[in-house]
Design a protein around this nucleic acid. Structure first.
Length: 550
RNA sequence: GCGGGCGUAGUUCAAUGGUAGAACGUCAGCCUUCCAAGCUGAAUAUGCCGGUUCGAUCCCGGUCGCCCGCUCCA
């Protein structure tokens, strides 16, 4: 039977059962932000804790047969703003964009160039027009289009100016011999004395520009800055001098503490530093539930190693990360491993592999869940330069050998991981009363078990309470007394509780309870004293499957 | 941010220029010895702001949010 998983249904279930709510729901929500409810919080914590355990508490066995060395940090969300200049985010995340009313396209304003005729001849040029092109356009294509637009087709007769500089140019060079020639003519034509007197002179110029994909003038709007980074002001006075940024990724905090960790933690290359935390991006279009939100959580490892060992460690981490996702309930056959093509790699990366999952909204495609990148020693180099602090690592065997280690970065989205777990677990089953159940692994399930007295009368309730109090010391469990047993099973199915322990009359006589398994709905009886052990064994199943694969 | 579609209980849907109904869910009670049974009862909705109108959930504008496409992206 083909299961149709609809994102809408998953979102509805998440709200109905308390996994995830729209942030500020009672105020009508706020785009790009989500709140985790009681069950969502448990689920997220389970995934987070498991990652931390696999990375920091019980890191994997390395190629040499001994466990690799990884330590954790938890850095501030706000750091010295210079840090984001070093990382390239202040430059790279602030792109001026411009929209075209006609072609409905959006362009990077700094990628557009405007062609200005070096001299204006009313006979030849007619109305003064400034055709605009993408900077990567070939001269041949430019000339072709100029001809089509009935303009001079000889490129040498034009000056070229960046679209973003038009405002500056119009205001600052009004009397420039070269700069004024066009606007001056334009002004004469419209009986305007001086360009500088017109408050919106740049706008008038802009009104004569022909967008890259149109034939008409004035369809390009004002360029606007897209600040991908959220900012705030540290201190009471709000001014540029104390402007700070909310981190757009967690990894910077690791690099900033590289030296502190090396100096304080007796780690030796190769080693890793791990961090889990919130990051913030002012996404243009938050979409697809919690997949692209403006506040999200990342789990990142920076693995520091010698350059010569990069290929070995890269493969090692790809393998480890595959096992991780498999063991938390995302089968490898649901993942797509994309060796990012050279031309799409970040400038500092020589190799990146994206783990992509087919989310319900992905259609035939896949969307990124985790990325493993070789970042070279770009980050440490940058921070060393910008901070003027030596970050070189000293080889303990050879104190003369100082170097900036290379980095392999397995970076996964915790928020996206939760969405993958939800999507993967959501299982339509018309044969059962709930119509759907959440097939979480026992380890990831927000509730490990429910304790259900078969009836709310007689002696079932006290026995159930006793079992509940015992179990809750070690597991997240529910005690549910009210309503008929079928309703309660159904409710547990919908929240993905793998086991229900039911107390009935036999329990009073022989201290056995029925275990009802979520996926099969099969039942067996076990002794009350064995329940803890039973659950422990099931919880370990994920971890042992991981070991088996190793 | 642009274009298109949409906004009614917790969920899924009805209805109307004269103040809203259902199903399921939730809660309470009865019943009940294993899968949302049955019976009784209860609570809960026209996203928000403004305009037109005697009167707006319905028409108009704005705003917020959701979905699709563009763009962007962990």
């Amino acid at each position: 039977m083909t299961q149709i998983k609809d994102m809408k249904d998953i979102v509805a279930l998440c709200k109905r059962r308390g996994f995830i709510f729209a942030a500020s729901d009672i105020y009508g929500g706020i785009n790009g932000f989500w709140d985790f409810g009681p069950l969502g919080t448990e689920l997220k914590n389970n995934l987070r804790d498991r990652w931390w355990k696999d990375m920091v508490l019980c890191p994997p066995i390395g190629p040499d047969g001994t466990p690799v060395e990884i330590v954790g940090v938890d850095s501030a969300i706000i750091q010295n703003p210079k840090c984001w200049e070093a990382s390239g985010h202040v430059g790279g995340f602030n792109d001026p964009m411009v929209d075209c009313k006609e072609s409905k396209k959006r362009y990077r304003a700094d990628h557009l160039i405007v062609y200005l005729p070096k001299s204006y001849d009313p006979e030849m040029d007619g109305a003064l027009l400034f055709p605009c092109f993408d900077k990567d356009e070939t001269p041949e294509d430019v000339e072709k289009r100029l001809k089509k637009l009935n303009l001079r087709s000889d490129i040498s007769q034009y000056e070229v100016i960046s679209f973003v500089d038009i405002k500056t140019w119009a205001y600052t060079n009004p009397n420039d011999d070269y700069g004024i020639s066009h606007p001056k003519n334009y002004c004469e034509q419209y009986k305007i004395d001086e360009l500088v007197r017109i408050p919106d002179s740049h706008k008038i110029l802009r009104d004569r520009i022909i967008g890259p994909d149109t034939k008409t003038v004035g369809t390009l709007g004002e360029p606007r800055m897209f600040n991908m980074m959220f900012h705030s002001y540290a201190g009471a006075a709000a001014g540029e001098e104390n402007k700070v940024y909310l981190r757009p990724e967690t990894c910077a905090g690791i690099f900033l503490n590289f030296k502190n960790v090396v100096d304080s933690s007796r780690v030796k290359v190769p080693f890793g530093i791990a961090q889990i935390g919130k990051a913030f991006r002012n996404e243009v279009t938050p979409r697809n539930f919690i997949f692209r939100s403006r506040e999200f959580e990342q789990m990142e490892l920076e693995w520091f190693c010698e350059e010569k060992d990069v290929p070995m460690w890269f493969d090692f981490w790809v393998e480890q990360r595959k096992r991780f996702w498999e063991s938390v309930g995302v089968p490898l056959n649901k993942l797509h491993f994309l060796d990012v093509p050279k031309e799409e790699l970040a400038h500092y990366s020589s190799r990146t592999i994206d783990f992509e999952y087919q989310f319900p909204f992905s259609g035939e495609g896949y969307d990124e869940l985790e990325g493993i990148a070789h970042r070279g020693n770009f980050d440490l180099t940058q921070h060393q330069e910008f901070s003027k602090t030596k970050l070189e690592y000293m080889d303990p065997q050879d104190p003369k050998n100082r170097y900036l280690p290379h980095v392999i970065e397995p970076s996964s989205g915790l928020t996206r991981g939760v969405l993958a777990l939800l999507s993967e677990a959501y299982t339509v089953d018309d044969s059962r009363p709930s119509g759907v159940y959440m097939n979480f692994t026992p380890e990831m399930a927000p509730k490990k078990a429910a304790i259900l007295p078969l009836t709310a009368k007689d002696d079932h309730v006290p026995l159930a309470q006793k079992l509940y109090l015992e179990l809750r010391e070690e597991f997240v469990v529910d005690l549910d007394i009210k309503q008929n047993i079928g309703k309660r099973y159904a409710r547990q199915d919908e929240i993905g509780t793998p086991y229900c322990f039911t107390i009935d009359n036999d329990t009073i006589n022989d201290q056995t309870v029925t275990v009802r398994e979520r996926n099969t709905m099969a039942q067996e009886r076990i002794h009350m004293d064995k329940v803890k052990e039973f659950l422990h064994e099931k919880m370990r199943a994920g971890a042992s499957a991981l070991k088996k694969a190793a």
